[in-house]
Simulated assay, not measured.
Amino acid sequence: MDSQALNARCVELFQNPNVRLRMWNARMFWKVGDQFNVSSDKLTDPKVDLCELEVMLATAALTESQCAAELDKKEPGRAAFIQRQTREGMRPLLRAATH
């Protein structure tokens, strides 16, 4: 999945009601300047690794991740760690985005 499609998936997952219950602010994951209530079309410049973000958001949304296998190829066990932390109500520290 290319980075634009992956970002679009993350933005879509971020809108999921189960994710919204976590009360995460978009500023935690995307560069949005000093804005607090940002519309989804402004979420284009990620602060964190999009693959890791997709795994975290998919877990919070109670849906299947499309990046977990790819992430585990790069670093075995990383996806399971992110999923476990998210299921336990924590927000795992995600790696910074590489541009």
Rank of each mutant, 00 (worst) to 15 (best):
E70V: 14
A69V: 10
Q66H: 12
A60W: 01
M56I: 02
P76H: 06
M56S: 12
K73S: 10
C67V: 06
S40C: 03
G89P: 01
N16D: 09
P17R: 04
S3M: 10
Q83R: 13
R95N: 02
V32I: 12
R78H: 02
Q85I: 14
A60R: 00
K31R: 14
C67H: 04
R20T: 03
L21Q: 14
E54G: 02
A5M: 10
S39T: 11
C51W: 02
Q66E: 13
L6P: 01
E75T: 08
K73M: 15
S65R: 03
Q35C: 13
K74L: 07
R22N: 10
L53R: 07
P92D: 03
C67K: 09
R95D: 09
E52A: 05
G33E: 04
R78T: 00
D49C: 12
Q4K: 14
T86I: 10
K74S: 04
D45Y: 06
L50Y: 03
K47T: 08
R27A: 15
D41V: 09
A60V: 09
V19F: 02
S39M: 13
L94Y: 11
K42F: 04
A60Y: 00
E12L: 09
E54P: 07
D2M: 11
Q35N: 09
E70I: 13
A8F: 02
D2S: 13
L94R: 15
S39Q: 06
H99Q: 04
E52M: 01
A26G: 01
E54S: 06
M23D: 14
W24D: 11
V55T: 14
M28W: 15
G33N: 08
Q85F: 11
L71S: 02
Q66V: 08
N16R: 06
L13F: 00
P46G: 02
E70T: 12
C51P: 08
G77C: 08
E12T: 15
C10R: 05
C51K: 14
T59F: 00
L6R: 05
L93C: 10
P17K: 07
N25W: 11
K42G: 00
N25D: 12
W24T: 09
N18F: 08
R95I: 02
G77H: 04
A61N: 01
Q85A: 14
T44S: 07
P17I: 06
T86W: 01
I82Q: 00
A60H: 03
R95K: 08
Q4V: 13
D49N: 08
D34A: 14
L93I: 07
G89T: 02
S39D: 10
M56K: 00
S39F: 10
H99K: 08
F36H: 06
V38H: 01
T86H: 02
A96T: 12
D45N: 13
T98A: 10
E52K: 02
R87E: 09
Q4H: 13
V11H: 01
L71W: 01
V19M: 03
V48L: 09
V11L: 07
F36E: 13
L57S: 03
R91N: 14
C10P: 07
A8G: 11
K31F: 14
A8K: 05
P46Y: 00
